[in-house]
C-alpha cells in the first residue's frame, strides 16, 4: 500500500508538470461542434491553488473517504440494546431536531421562498453516554406563501437495528419582518411516533410543540434565538413530561461570501440537570443554493450526548 501511495503521488507530480493543457475529448468536440458556450461553470474549491497541491489534496480526500467508511463499518455493530431503557430520555434531547440551515439545529426566522423547495441531507455519528449511533436526516421544505413554509423531516438510523426514526412535520409563519435580516417567526411542529421503540427507534410518543424564533444581525454576524414549549403526548399520564427547549446560534461569514462559521448552544428542561450541548461548524458555498457543511458538537453534562460529528448539504431549488 505504501509503494502504491508513493506511485500515486509520483503520478500527481508528473501530471502537475507535464499534463497537456489542450482540451480533452468532450471539450474538443463541444468546441468543434459549437456548443461549448452552453457550459455552466461550476465553482472550484481549489481555484487558484497550484495543481500539485490540489492533486495531493484530492488524493488525501479520496483515501480519507475510504478509511472513514472502513472505520464506521467496523464500529456499527455496537449494540443499541443498552440504549432501550434510556430511549425516552435520549429521544427527548433530539426532539427539536429541526435545523434551519445545516449544520445548525437552532432555526432561523427565514421561510423558504414562495414556490421554492429546500432540501437538506445530513449524516451524523453521535456518541451518546452508552453507545454510538449513526443516522441520516432528510429534510424537505416547500415555500407556500412568501412568509409561510411547510416541511417534513425523515430521520433514518443505520446502527445495529436500522430503521426509520420518528418523522416530523412543521409549519413556519413569519409574522414580523422589519427588514431583510431581522424578524420573528412562529413555528408549529408535530412529531409522529412511527419509530419502532422496541428496536431503539423513536420516543414512542406523539409530540406537539410551539416555538418562537427571533433573528437579528449585528454587523456581519447573524444571531438566532429559539424558545419553544414541547407537549409530549403521553397517554393517561400522571406526571407531565412537557418541557421547554431553548437554543442560541451565531453565524459569521468567512472567505468573502464563500463560507460561514457557525456556533450554537442547544438545551432543554427535559431533565433535572438541563441537557445541553455546544456545536461548532462551517458551511461552504459550492454554488448558489448549494452548500456543504460539517460540524462537531460536545455535550455539557452527563444528561447530554458525549460528542457528535455531522456532515451534509443544503440545496435550494
Amino acid at each position: 500500500m505504501k509503494r502504491l501511495f508513493l506511485l500515486t503521488i509520483l503520478i500527481v507530480i508528473l501530471a502537475a508538470f507535464f499534463a497537456s493543457a489542450a482540451p480533452d475529448g468532450l471539450d474538443f468536440v463541444s468546441q468543434k461542434l459549437g456548443f461549448a458556450h452552453k457550459t455552466v461553470e461550476a465553482s472550484s474549491l481549489v481555484a487558484g491553488i497550484p495543481t500539485l497541491l490540489a492533486g495531493i489534496m484530492g488524493i488525501l480526500i479520496i483515501i480519507g473517504i475510504f478509511y472513514f467508511v472502513a472505520l464506521i463499518s467496523k464500529r456499527t455493530w455496537i449494540s443499541l440494546t443498552f440504549l432501550i431503557p434510556l430511549i425516552p430520555l435520549i429521544s427527548l434531547l433530539f426532539v427539536p431536531s429541526a435545523f434551519a440551515a445545516r449544520p445548525l439545529i437552532t432555526d432561523d426566522f427565514y421561510t423558504v421562498t414562495q414556490g421554492g423547495y429546500e432540501l437538506e441531507i445530513g449524516y451524523a455519528s453521535t456518541q451518546n453516554q452508552t453507545c454510538l449511533t449513526n443516522a441520516a436526516d432528510l429534510s424537505l421544505k416547500r415555500g407556500l406563501l412568501s412568509n409561510l413554509d411547510l416541511g417534513i423531516e425523515v430521520p433514518y438510523t443505520f446502527s445495529d437495528e436500522p430503521g426509520l426514526n420518528d418523522i416530523l412535520l412543521h409549519a413556519k409563519y413569519c409574522f414580523w419582518k422589519p427588514d431583510e435580516d431581522a424578524g420573528l417567526t412562529a413555528r408549529v411542529d408535530y412529531k409522529f411516533n412511527n419509530g419502532d421503540v422496541s428496536h431503539g427507534l423513536g420516543s414512542g410518543y406523539n409530540d406537539y410543540s410551539l416555538m418562537i424564533i427571533g433573528s437579528k444581525m449585528f454587523g456581519k454576524t447573524k444571531t438566532h434565538v429559539n424558545l419553544g414549549y414541547v407537549k409530549v403526548g403521553v397517554n393517561a399520564c400522571v406526571t407531565s413530561y412537557d418541557y421547554l427547549s431553548y437554543s442560541f446560534a451565531m453565524e459569521h461569514p468567512v472567505w468573502g461570501e464563500r463560507g460561514d462559521l457557525v456556533a450554537e448552544y442547544v438545551g432543554n428542561s427535559a431533565l433535572n440537570r438541563h441537557p445541553g450541548f455546544i456545536q461548532i461548524g462551517a458551511r461552504y458555498v459550492v454554488s448558489e443554493g448549494f452548500k456543504l457543511d460539517a460540524a462537531y458538537s460536545v455535550g455539557l453534562n452527563d444528561n447530554s450526548i458525549k460528542n457528535s460529528a455531522t456532515a451534509g448539504f443544503h440545496y435550494e431549488f
Partner: peptide
C-alpha cells in the same frame, strides 16, 4: 488506493 491512483491518472492529460 485504486480510487486515488485513478484520480491521479485522470489529472494526467
Amino acid at each position: 488506493m485504486v480510487a486515488a491512483l485513478i484520480f491521479a491518472c485522470q489529472m494526467f492529460n
